[in-house]
Design a protein around this nucleic acid. Structure first.
Lengths: 339, 339
DNA sequence: TTTATTTACGCAATCGTTCCCGGAAAAATC
DNA sequence: GATTTTTCCGGGAACGATTGCGTAAATAAA
């Protein structure tokens, strides 16, 4: 017994009306008499009629769904962002289709093609750590397809963008280490072509220079896979602790890297913060429960998701092509563990 | 300049063929000559033609998308499960639409209605902690709508189910505590009407009885919101530590509850495991980095997602209504921290 | 009473695709 | 050379809903 949803035709036949009349009655058109409207409405309720969204999509040429691509949802920052995205999207009647790139360029391209083929109305994306080539995004963007970048943005593409004050967040975190007396501070960061990498490393360097310390390239380690592959982080950390002039602190520029460092240091039996201080960006809510509760830069992830979605829907629902784009910068917060 | 995807009509017009011919050529029908096929295929490639999934959905009466409802994705167990779900679904050409109930019954019902209105082909659900009334699920199920339960299953509804050996997992964890010498073990668990609650509490009790210990109702605390609301857990823990005969260990039956206990104990300044031992179900990968690395019961979340999806797709793609259902029980694992 | 206007509804096209039917031309058979 | 069979392709309906246009009947205005 296969379930068949009631259609407008069912109502029309039962009431000996045309489908047009039923359609108009349901949409409360002025050219339908009150009596007919009532009849239709009652019968629709009885049949538990709901307009078929697929038929509507076909006609309207929009699916009322938006795609989201993040590196992985098993990451506090992104899962919190997604919550923000859903809160806004669902309220406006949009479905959210979430996909993960797992920090792989190929996966990102494939996933993007897939989403495009599912005819989403717009895209929210935080590009993968491995994304250097932008043709897949530029091609879509040139067609006038609505895209909003968040977190890891692409400067090259003219559209709305949402991020935090990456420079300031990194600056504050590094400054905090300096104030604690650490002077030889290393930085473990994402792949070099990511916007967040550039900005956060710049903030880190600025803090050092403010203290008259010359940043050293040997102390900056780039992880191409953004900590997705643990060995990458472990190697970076191991190289640092084997240095003749070993750093006394590490600043990690993202969630996965921060916890990756903790793992690596634990494995190498380096005590935090005694032998090596640590700080970094993280939205994990387990930080306070950790063996070494470190100071972290927390991003307003939920809010970021909300803002990005609002901007995207604005783009989608705009009648005329939008020519003026905004870049929203939210504030990060340095969370210092209570003693 | 609005982007308009190439359609079969565009190809037909350009090649002076009918849409039927183009359609057949693309599907490699035997009644189209090789020459025409080649022509069509080439032109399709040039226009970057992709069949419109919405039009297909309308015709086929299936959307090739499945809905997933979990309590929240910012939960290691569920995000890992979702990864498993996506891996199978995407491979089979299905889109996954993820929704969160946030452990609220109302949200679950609303979300389910929403998914149904988006005409998903099937549903994967781990019911919310607050779900007692099952009419929303039963109604859908009676229409022959494909549903597969995972993790928190509903015994009443006859369909495929996937879960872990909850009894055994709880038994093992409790037994481990007993072997360590703890005798007065409390249990903090989800709302009483959840399948996982019943089974895990039963495992806990069985282990106690095996050691000749009579389970005490006062030591079993039910959290209706499954730890979604921290005060709920904090209250439970506080009540336990204020008992005249204070327990020496706690067994928490789920991820959120386990970390909730840690928070509560930390706040109450109760040392783990010195003053109070702790163990529980958890799939968090940060456990080993915690201040007190506790033994945890780990579920094969990814695999559970895969199996559940395979069963669901089997249900969806079956020609005849399926009458025989399976309940797959996967194995959990007790992870003991290295000293 | 005649004409103009409104009211209330139906017809048919449309969105992109598939598929049943029907049929002309080419090939095969007698 | 006439018939049958293939081969190859087009016409048109269908999926569910919306909407511009046409129009009969009812009402209002002249």
């Amino acid at each position: 017994m296969k379930y068949r949803a009631a259609t407008i035709k069912d109502i029309a036949q039962a009431l000996r009306l045309s489908t047009s009349t039923v359609s108009r009655a349901l949409r409360d058109s002025h050219e339908i008499s009150a009596a007919t409207k009532q009849l239709v409405l009652e019968h629709a309720a009885r049949l538990n009629y709901h307009p078929n969204p697929i038929a509507l999509s076909l006609k309207e040429k929009k699916s009322r769904s938006i795609g989201v691509i993040v590196s992985e949802i098993a990451n506090s920052f992104f899962s919190q962002t997604i919550n923000g995205i859903e809160s806004v999207a669902n309220e406006k009647g949009y479905t959210v289709i979430i996909s993960q790139s797992h920090e792989s360029f190929e996966k990102e391209v494939r996933t993007l093609q897939y989403l495009a083929s599912r005819s989403i109305d717009g895209l929210l994306i935080s590009v993968s750590s491995a994304t250097k080539d932008l043709t897949h995004l530029k091609a879509l963007h040139q067609f006038g397809f609505p895209i909003v970048f968040f977190d890891r943005i692409i400067e090259d593409i003219a559209t709305h963008k949402v991020m935090v004050d990456n420079f300031q967040g990194a600056y504050n975190a590094t400054m905090h280490l300096l104030q604690q007396g650490y002077r030889h501070i290393a930085c473990i960061t994402n792949s070099a072509h990511l916007s967040i990498t550039r900005e956060r490393v710049a903030g880190y360097m600025a803090a050092l220079e403010k203290h008259g310390i010359q940043p050293q390239p040997a102390l900056i380690k780039y992880c191409f896979h953004g900590g997705m592959l643990l060995p990458e982080v472990t190697d970076a950390v191991n190289q640092l602790i084997k240095l003749k002039h070993k750093p006394d602190a590490i600043f990690a520029t993202s969630d996965k890297l921060t916890t990756g460092c903790m793992r690596a240091l634990k494995k190498a039996k380096v005590a935090i913060p005694k032998e090596m201080a640590l700080t970094g960006f993280s939205n994990s809510d387990l930080i306070e429960l950790l063996h070494a509760p470190i100071p972290v830069v927390r991003q307003p992830a939920f809010e970021m998701g909300q803002v990005a979605t609002e901007l995207l829907l604005q783009l989608i629902e705009s009648k005329r092509p939008v020519k003026e784009f905004e870049t929203r910068v939210l504030h990060s917060e340095l969370l210092i563990p209570s003693k």
